[in-house]
Structures are given as structure tokens and as C-alpha cells.
Design a protein around this nucleic acid. Structure first.
Lengths: 342, 342
DNA sequence: ATGAAAGCGCTAACAA
DNA sequence: TTGTTAGCGCTTTCAT
């Protein structure tokens, strides 16, 4: 195994000082064309590349972004992570992953691990913030962006779908579809996404003079969602909902399966189902799920640009709560109002 | 934003030398209980944590593992990554992600980026190796493990399912099920997984005196797989396969949808479908796909232990090709032989 | 434009 | 067991 090539060795081969080599690899440094050429050639010959870690030490910028994510089973996240990582890569950053859920316990511990790596920024996906975390980052001077969560807490930038508006849209769609007994399967109640979707959904129901027919909690988990579906639907037809809004697709798919295969209900004839996210399987013909799409491309784009702003202008940037509008994708799992204009 | 706390500041507060502080945070270093206590207290008070990057510079161990992955849409990968990351975290390592496919082009470029971070090891998932990459890592002295790929190339450790045996199992199962016209939808032909699965499948077919009825390439992509399904099945009943083995579940699910919804075929009455991987949707009642399970837990475990072995005994470890047996998970998408013993 | 020199925060000999 | 010292590979003043 060959020894690692350092800038000093390149300098010697090129017949220049070590700092000259450094300058050549530092965008915007002042080097003559002649020196640059000599160094480039020597570097090429030796296969030299700057050591990112050494650079990080002295410059204080590691070009590492810490990403905290809880569970990858919900397809929304892998898809988003792929985009996020790609986008960050294009900006010269890389993503260091931290799994939050089953590991060492709480977010606070994970955060310390992240900070140990001198990351330039943090993205928290599907994770609830503690004010503790926020102040710790503030104190460390590390910008943080919440992805697909928002927080009442001030001073934290977050990027999410406009969940309240999304919830409203679903309710209005279901009401326009002529449904009378409309129910809701909630996600984990600690999540802002869950709360906002439900709040918007209920508000629009109320505005139209409707009551929520029934409600159960699915906790964003497949199995819990299946139980929730049975709880709501395993009863005489008269008591059964004729429509259900499920707080995300991951649960909605499981709910559909219970309804169709365990309870022998027809979708959408007996019951309409609407989800939230528009993950890939929602579009598969076996589900054909009407759902409120989260625009993950735009969410990622906003996340990256907010993060880079914070990194590049540590002072000038004010935290923002970015809410992105999501369209309702009308498919076949819910009765569609006549003449509904998608 | 408070200044970053260094070991020197802790040392001053504790009234000891800076190296004493270092020792307290270095497992297995020799420090007296008294010193340890003083340092712990001071560190606690200041909120000190060692800078991983500085440690990496001098020790040569970054505790970062580079993970190269191509596409996260196939659920097998996110699920595996979650496990991999968790397992590595438990061993004090963290995962730096590099998306391979759509980014800066080829693996060789990505590899250089990885090496820039002085990673302690590399895991390549769903990526074909070039001998270039192998020798570059060898030269840099960085251990590398191929996950879910194996390579003819010597000197590279790989962890994968026994794809050949898996292919055989599927063929034997289909033959036992009384099928006569057995077809195959191939994955990307550059992948060892694809090649081995097909080779095993064909070999078992041949051993039983069967010919492959027809074959199309799905490239491991949903859309291409749909086209492959139409190519194989959109024809008179007499020419149509009565069974198809699809090289992975991601494609198999798409194939099932085409068969059922576009071509109005009944599964398994008209055609049996078998996949490979056992991703979560394969178990959903809407698909109920018979498939050869990849034991991702075991694969991850083997990957991590092989990697750590290579890291800890740079010399003593010989590269191995680890092939893990995968069980056939019998569900409802294929006719099951009478008295079949799962 | 260039080189010399001073560190970034830490670990690892080396003495004591 | 402890402190002193010398770097790890790089960027960045500061002179020149």
C-alpha cells in the first residue's frame, strides 16, 4: 500500500512551496498560470488529492451535512434522501447519516455524535425537535433545517408541505364526493405533520357543517394502521364510515388492504380512501390511491438552499417556516365528484 | 455562539495537562481514577466533546465508512441501509453516503471523493466494481466490501445471497408446480446478481429437461420491466408463458400489475409469478408474491464484521466471497406444488 | 505572486 | 501515571 500523497510531496516534485500547492486547490486564491500548471502536473503524476479532513480542521468547514432520519420503511424518505444527497453532492457537500429511532435512545445523544464530526449543517427528517437540540445547535453555531416537520419553536428553519391546506383539500374533496360519514386515521400524535393535517381536515369539515364520523390512531406504522382500520370499519354497514382520510400513504396502503381483503369492502364503492405523500406504490394499479402529493423535489431544493444560506451567511439569515403547496392527485381509490377539476 | 471547547480548556479547568484530557477520552489509556474524575467533571461543566476530525488526522482513523449506493427506489436498499447504518453506529462508525448513478458520472470519480474523506472503509451496494476501483483502494489501503454484488475479481470481499442456489430453488419450485412454459425477466445484465440468478435458474431448468420458454430484460427498472412483461405475455394463450421468474421484486410487482390489470390474466391461475428479495410490498395482500428472500439482517451482519475485520487486521484478513442462503417464501402468486414443504 | 511560519485540535511517543 | 513535545495535512496571515 503506497503512502498517502501530501501537498508537500507535490510541492517538492513541482519545485514550489507547499503553500503554492494549497493555493492551486483553493478556489479564488492567487496563483500564476505557470505555477498552477506545474502543480497540476505534479499532482496528476502523484495522484494527489487534498485531504478533506485536514482542510476541515483549519478552515472550520467540513463539507459534511449531518442527516438524522428515523425510519426508512416509509418510502417517502428514501426517495427524498436520494434527492437530498444528490443535490448536496452537487454543491460539494456530503451526507453523514444518523439513524434516530432504535439507536442509542434520544435525539439529544445523536446530536452530540453529529456535532463531534464538525458538520457544517444538519437536516432533521421525520424527527421532532426538542428545544434542547435547538439551543445546542445555536450554541455550537450549526445551522439546522427541519425536513417534513415544522415546529412552533422560533428560530428554526423548517421545510414541509402545507399540511393544513393539504388536510383541507382532502376534506373538501371528500365532501364534494358526497360522503356523509368521514373518518380519519391519525399518524403519530407527536408529529407536527400529523397535527397540521388533522387540523386542516377537521377545519374544512366543520366549515361545511360536517362532523368527523370517527377517528383512530395509526402512529405512522403499518401494523398500528391495520388495527386502526379494523377498529373503524369492523362494524355493521350503518355505523361504518363511507370515507377515510389516512394521514400518510404508508398507512393508507395498509388500510386499503384491510378493507379489501379482510373486511371485503369495495374501494371506492363501499368506502373512499385518501392518503398523503404520493409515494411510488400509491400510483401502482393495485392501489391507485388518491392522495395529496408532497413535492419532494421542491422540498429538497428549499432545504438545500436554506441550509446553504445559513452556512454562508451565518448572521444575515432569518429562520423561516417554508410551507409548500401540495396538489391532490386524484386516482381511483375515492369517489370523484362529477366534473371535479383536478 | 459560544466558542468551541477544546481539550486544552478542559485541561486548564481541571488543572491537568492537555494530554491527560486526551487520555481520559481514549479507551484503554492509562489514567488514574483521580485524574479521570477531575477531567470528567471539567469536561461536563464545559460541555466538551473530542473533535472527531482532529482525532482522525493524527490517528489515521476517521470512523467514517463510505457507502456507495445507486438507487433507493428498490426498497431492498433503504431497508438494508437502515440496518447497516444502525449496526455501524453501534460499533462507533458512521456512514457517509455517496449516490452513484445520476451524479458526476462514473464510480471512479465517486471513489476519489470518498477517499478525500479518509474513510476507514467502503461499502458498495448495488454497484459494479471496476478493477480500477479495486486497485485504487488497495493502493490507498482502504478496505472495501461489496454488498449484494459479487465479483469475479479476486481480492475483493463481497456479501450476497447465494443467487445461483436461489435461482435453482425458484426453477425447481416452478417445475414442481407443473408449469410447462417457464419464462424469465432479467435484471440489468451487467449485474452479478442478475447473472447468477439466471444461471442457477437455467441450470435447474435444464437438469429437469426443461427449456426456457422465453426471456426479456427488465434492467431492474419498473418501466422496463413493464415493457418486458408485455413483450412476453401480450400474445395468444398458446404462446404465453404459464410461469415467470422475475429477477427482483421491484420488477416483479410491476410485472404483476401489467399481467393483472393490462392483460387481464389471473395470478396464479393463468400465470405464476415468482420474485427475488422479499421486499415489504411483496408480503402485502394486494401482491402476495412468492419470492426468494434475501436475508438482509444476515447480509448486513456479515458485511459489518468483514469490514471491521479488514480495518482491524489490515494484513491478516483474506478476502472472501460470502454467499448467504435465502429461503423461498411461498405465498399466493404462484401455484404451489401439492404437499410442498416450505 | 510566492515562501516561511503559525497554527487547527488532537494522539502518541518519549521522558520523568 | 503524568507532562512535554512533535507532528497529522492543510489553510492562512505575513513578509518579501
Amino acid at each position: 500500500m503506497a503512502d498517502k500523497i501530501t501537498s508537500l510531496q507535490v510541492a517538492e516534485l513541482a519545485g514550489v512551496s507547499q503553500s503554492a500547492v494549497s493555493r492551486v486547490f483553493t478556489p479564488g486564491a492567487s496563483v500564476s498560470a505557470k505555477t498552477r500548471e506545474k502543480v497540476r502536473k505534479a499532482a496528476e503524476e502523484l495522484g494527489y488529492r487534498p485531504n478533506v479532513l485536514a482542510r476541515a480542521m483549519v478552515s472550520g468547514k467540513s463539507r459534511i451535512i449531518g442527516l438524522v432520519v428515523a425510519y426508512l420503511e416509509n418510502q417517502f424518505y428514501p426517495v427524498a434522501i436520494e434527492k437530498l444527497s444528490n443535490s448536496l453532492q452537487e454543491h460539494g457537500y456530503h451526507v453523514l447519516i444518523f439513524m434516530a429511532a432504535q439507536t442509542s435512545g434520544n435525539i439529544d445523544d445523536v446530536l452530540e455524535e453529529i456535532l463531534d464530526y464538525q458538520v457544517d449543517g444538519i437536516v432533521m427528517a421525520s424527527v421532532a425537535m426538542s428545544s434542547n437540540v435547538a439551543s445546542r445547535c445555536q450554541q455550537a453555531g450549526i445551522p439546522i433545517v427541519l425536513f417534513n416537520r415544522s415546529q412552533d419553536m422560533d428560530g428554526i428553519t423548517s421545510v414541509a408541505t402545507d399540511n393544513y391546506a393539504g388536510g383541507r383539500k382532502v376534506a373538501e374533496f371528500l365532501i364534494a364526493g358526497g360522503h356523509k360519514k368521514i373518518s380519519y386515521v391519525a399518524g403519530w400524535e407527536g408529529a407536527s405533520t400529523q397535527r397540521d393535517r388533522e387540523a386542516g381536515f377537521r377545519a374544512a369539515l366543520q366549515d361545511a357543517g360536517h362532523d368527523l364520523h370517527s377517528r383512530a390512531v395509526g402512529d405512522f406504522h403499518t401494523e398500528t394502521a391495520r388495527e386502526a382500520a379494523r377498529e373503524l370499519f369492523d362494524k355493521p354497514a350503518a355505523d361504518r364510515p363511507d370515507a377515510v382520510f389516512v394521514a400518510n400513504d404508508h398507512m393508507a396502503l395498509a388500510v386499503m388492504d384491510v378493507l379489501r381483503f379482510d373486511l371485503n369492502l369495495k374501494i371506492p364503492e363501499d368506502v373512499s380512501v385518501v392518503g398523503f405523500d404520493d409515494v411510488p406504490p400509491a400510483g401502482w394499479p393495485a392501489y391507485d390511491l388518491t392522495t395529496l402529493r408532497q413535492r419532494s423535489n421542491m422540498m429538497v431544493q428549499e432545504t438545500v438552499s436554506a441550509l446553504l444560506d445559513h452556512i454562508n451567511q451565518p448572521a444575515a439569515v432569518v429562520p423561516r417556516k417554508i410551507a409548500i403547496d401540495g396538489p391532490l392527485v386524484v386516482r381511483g381509490s375515492a369517489k370523484t365528484p362529477e366534473g371535479y377539476d383536478q
